[in-house]
Each structure stands twice: as C-alpha cells, then as structure tokens.
Computed example of a mutant assay.
Amino acid sequence: MTVRAAWLTETGQTREDTRLTLSGLLTVNANAAENLPLKSRGGIVPGGFALTGATGSMTFTIGTGRAFVQGGRINQGAYPVAVTEPETLTVLDGDAQYDRLDLVELVVRDSVYDGTAATEALLRLVKGTPSTSPTLPNTPDGSALPLYQIRVPKGASAGGGGLLWESAVTPLRYPTVALGGIVPAGGFSGAYPGQYREESGVLQRWDGTVWVPYPKSAGGIAPSTPLLVSGSYVGQYREDAAGQLQRWNGSAWVYAEGRTTLLLSVSQSTAQSVSSGVWTAMNLNVTDVDDTAGWATNVYTVPRAGWWRVAGAVTWFTESTSGTRGSRIYVNGAGVPRATWQIGAGPGATTVGGTALLKLAAGDKVALYGLQSSGTTMTTLGGSGYYTSLNAEWLRS
C-alpha cells in the first residue's frame, strides 16, 4: 500500500509503518529535496550522550540519552533509540608513527535494509587509519549518528598516560526536536519558511532561502550579534556592530537622526612651520574626542555617510604683519571653496576659520590646511591659550 497509518488496522501494521508515520512528528530533513516529504532530521534529544574520559587511561564513558536515527532509504523511517545506562568503550593504543582519528557513533543495524544480518542498536567505536593527515573513518554498516571524534596521538597507550581527553575529543553530535520546535544548533538549511532555530543564542527564521535573525518582537531593536542584514518592515530598528542605532527605510539601514551622533575634536599644542604661499596640512597632535578612532596626524577618515558640520581654525604667530592668513577644509586632497577663510594679517596673533555643512561619504578623507602669504616662513601658535583645531559632527544621513 502507498497510504499507511499507525494504530489503525486491526492486523498487519508493520514496524516500517510505525516508524514512517510517527517520524512525521520530527523536524523535517532538508539536506536534499527528495528528503523533505518522508525523511526526518535525525539527532539526539538535547542534553544526552555526554562523553567522560577516564584520567590517565584509554577508556571513556558515553552517558544516557535519547536519539532518533534516520534510516538511509526513503521509506525506512526514523528509529527512536534510548541509552538507559552509561556505556564504557576503550580506545585501542596509538600507532607507532602516525596519529589517527576514531569515530564514536550511535548505530542501528537492520538486516531488512542494510544486509548486516543483524537487528540491533548499539554505541560503536570505529578505529581510523593512521596517517600524516588523518581523516575520520567511514561508517562500516547500518544507519549511524555521529557523536564524537577522538584524536589518538602516535604512541598513546594506557601505560603511557592515556589520552588528554580535554584536547583529544571533538563533539560531532547534533540535536533534533519535534516538528515546529526550535532547533538549538546551526550549520544546516531550513526545510520550510517559518522554521526556527537558535544559533549562538540568537533566534533565526528560515525565509525559504536563508536564515534571518529574528527581532525579539515587532518594534523591538534587533541586537548587533549577529547583524540583521535586511529589515522586515519600514521603521524597524537595529543596533549596528559599533552599538549605534539604525532604522530600516524600506531599502537600506540609515542611522537614526537625532539619536546617534559622532564627534571629532583635535587640536595643535605645538608650533608648526609653514612656508609662504602654500596650502599646508595642519598636524593636530591632541585628540580631545574621536568616537571612531578615525584621526591620524592630519587626516580624518569619515566613518559614516551623511551631512557633517565641520569647523576649522588656524592661529598664526606674529613673525610678520604682511600678507594674508587663511584656513581651508580639504576633502580627499582637494580644497573645499565654501569651507575656505582668509583675512589680512593683524598686529598680533591672527586666528582665521569657520564652519561649513558638508555631505561626505564613508571613507572620505578630511583635513585642515593653513595658508600664509607673508613672504617668509611662519609658525602656527600651539598652547599658551591659542590652539589650531578641527572639529566634526555627524548630523544626519
């Protein structure tokens, strides 16, 4: 028959009927398209099958647990298995020359399907092949669920101190849950839109193509780890990797206006020599505030696109009263005409500067330049109550 039921017919129900129908209560296996209708995601019930190695020996114990071992054939169904008492296994001594990898697995052997001439469930240790680059051995027979990998160093033996279990064992076990349950693991594809899993403490939903981190609730702020790639609705908020608030506008994440600002304030505390008639970058050696660590000597790397309020001022010493004094904001090596200020030299210290609104892109290079046309080399003033300075504040996208 092609239509089967469990606990319906008075006689004739087979073990395959029971396994196949009841395994529909488990999470679907999505590893291949042909698996979706009839195969379940095998795995352990979370929390079982802990491995404990005996110190100074080659012996270990697998603790109690429950699991579902999915058969390899489409109509084979999943086998419910329970280990009700701890099982002890012993690793064979290491090879004289090379390391090897051994495999600990939970196995169902069913002669109806695998030709093993056996009908049993067991915990099994499969010895690997020693090699300069050892690999895990293949499952000899039956339907198997991997639990652990054990690296056996060359020369390892009980007489030689046994295995260092903390470093020798790598977990391979993975969990399964009931259909609709949240799988507490990553590393697998979803089977249907609306399936959920938890990876590294973050809830994710399968949208039919990829796993999407899921906010705590509608209107909640999605956390920064892992970063929510696309928003679900206009007005959704997330926290970016730097801890700054962003809003989804329907096509892109933009920083929340009026809620998230960035500041830069740098200044010069020592005098700098400047040749006459040449725009010269100001070396600003004091950092008052730099929220993104974007300042380096005389250049600020813009961390965020949008409108910035940029202010600069250069203070000149009194070596000469001839010519003009100027300051200018440069972006990517070019002076900005509407962020250029010049005045005639005064009898004392001369400060020239101003403020401009500039639309900048992330990665742009911003700098403060100074100009003097006295005909001789002059110096800026640093300290003694006079500072040359550059300030920048992000305002909005």
Rank of each mutant, 00 (worst) to 15 (best):
M1F: 06
V3E: 14
A6R: 13
T14S: 15
D17F: 06
R19Y: 07
V28C: 12
F49V: 02
A50G: 15
G56C: 05
F60G: 01
T61F: 08
I74F: 13
N75Q: 10
G77V: 02
T84I: 11
T88M: 06
G94K: 00
D99G: 06
R100Y: 00
L103H: 06
E105L: 13
D110G: 01
A117Y: 09
A117L: 10
R124N: 14
T129E: 08
P137Y: 03
V152L: 07
P153N: 04
S167K: 05
A168R: 05
T170K: 12
A178E: 13
L179F: 14
G180E: 07
G190H: 05
Y196L: 15
R197P: 03
V202K: 14
R205A: 13
W211Q: 03
Y214V: 13
A218R: 13
P223E: 04
L228H: 10
R238P: 00
E239L: 12
A241R: 10
A241V: 14
W248T: 04
N249D: 15
G250M: 01
A252N: 05
V254G: 06
A256D: 09
E257N: 05
G258M: 06
T261S: 11
L264P: 04
Q268P: 03
S269P: 01
S276H: 08
G277L: 09
G277T: 06
M282G: 07
M282K: 01
V286G: 03
D290L: 00
D291N: 12
A293W: 02
A296Y: 09
T301Q: 11
T301P: 09
V302S: 06
R304W: 02
A305L: 10
W308G: 03
W316V: 01
S322K: 08
R325T: 01
R328Y: 07
N332T: 04
P337C: 03
G344T: 12
G348C: 09
L358W: 11
G363I: 04
V366K: 06
G370T: 02
L371T: 01
T380V: 09
L381P: 00
Y386V: 11
S389T: 08
N391C: 07
N391P: 00
